[in-house]
């Protein structure tokens, strides 16, 4: 068997052929370590790794690497997220080395939401390199033991490299080519945008299968349970790149107001059941945004427990 690239739990679970189940945790808007620990407690034992967002929606939060370290202390495996908006290539590489030195083994490479959305719209967006180039850079550091400049580094950061994919954005025809580009850049796993339009997702994964892409990288299907009709409508109308079909909104509107959240979870679990059987899907990335306390219940209902232990 081929040697593990990073040896993270997530990599081992996927390599062993288990259906992966990962979670998400947004660091606090302050120096509150307790909040991170509190959220982590709901995820512990229920997921294989936890994606720690990096100043998501361009709002300043505790650093992803710092919250990742808190998770390691709590016995969870973090997936350290890095966006291209806030750092140049020097800062990125030094943070990557530091993160690895402290035990981080997964990393997610993203462009980052534009700073205009956040709490510092006056900020200069860095974007020295883009997400595709970031993937290439981490791979070069890991596999060639070289900095982006080509200079040698003394110990390689053995990271399991992730990236995002949006199966829904236009032009749809380009989506699989973009995935192929990320795979060529060196990505090991993909977290998709939250999926609500199952027809479109099935088509995207079919095309990815046809191009052989799902054999080259593990695809984790993104699932975010809808808490309310308002949330669904917001996602549909206000979040760029999100595709929420009217039928999904109608389904939530069709149940008693007190049971909308329950219905949202039910829909998410149905999706997860389908993903388990879907060729080309290696797992689910559950983004229960500010709903971490619901993760144990969702994991139970989605029948993904207990999580596998792979040595």
């Amino acid at each position: 068997m081929e040697e593990l690239k990073a040896g993270s739990n997530l990599e081992k679970v996927l390599r062993a052929g288990h259906f992966a189940f990962t979670g998400e945790l947004g660091p606090p808007r302050g120096a509150n370590a307790e909040e991170v620990r509190k959220k982590a407690a709901f995820l512990k034992g229920n997921v294989d790794a936890v994606n720690i967002t990096d100043n998501q929606t361009a709002m300043v939060r505790m650093a992803s690497w710092a919250a990742s370290l808190l998770l390691i202390q709590e016995g969870l495996e973090p997936n350290f997220q890095m966006v291209c908006r806030d750092r140049n290539r020097l800062a990125m590489q030094s943070d990557i080395l530091g993160a690895y030195a402290h035990g981080i083994r997964n990393m997610l490479c993203l462009s980052g939401d534009h700073q205009q959305f956040g709490d510092h719209p006056q900020a200069m967006g860095v974007f020295d390199i883009d997400s595709m180039q970031l993937i290439q850079m981490v791979k070069k550091m890991r596999d060639e033991k070289k900095f982006l400049s080509g200079a040698d580094l003394d110990e390689a950061p053995k990271l399991f490299i992730g990236a995002a994919a949006n199966p829904f954005a236009e032009p749809f025809e380009w989506r699989v080519h973009r995935l192929a580009k990320k795979i060529n850049a060196g990505v090991d796993f993909i977290q998709t945008q939250c999926i609500y339009n199952m027809d479109k997702f099935r088509e995207w994964i079919r095309r990815s299968n046809d191009m052989g892409l799902t054999e080259k990288a593990y695809i984790l299907a993104g699932v975010t349970p809808l808490k309310s009709v308002g949330m669904a409508k917001y996602m549909q109308g206000k979040v760029p790149g999100m595709d929420v079909p009217d039928a999904v909104i109608k389904r939530l509107q069709g149940v008693d107001k007190k049971k909308v959240a329950e219905e949202g979870i039910k829909f998410a679990c149905e999706q997860i059941e389908e993903f388990k059987e879907m060729k080309g899907v290696a797992g689910v990335h559950l983004m229960a945004i500010e709903w971490e306390h619901k993760v144990p219940e969702i994991a139970e209902q989605a029948k993904v427990l207990p999580r596998p232990k792979v040595d």
Binding site: C84, R85, S111, G112, D113, H114, G125, F127, D130, S131, M132, Q133, A164, A165, N166, A169, W174, R178, K181, Q193, P240, G241
Partner: peptide, 10 residues
């Protein structure tokens, strides 16, 4: 975002 390998997910 001045991306050389776009478009981004947004």
């Amino acid at each position: 975002k001045g991306l050389y390998n776009g478009p981004c997910g947004g």
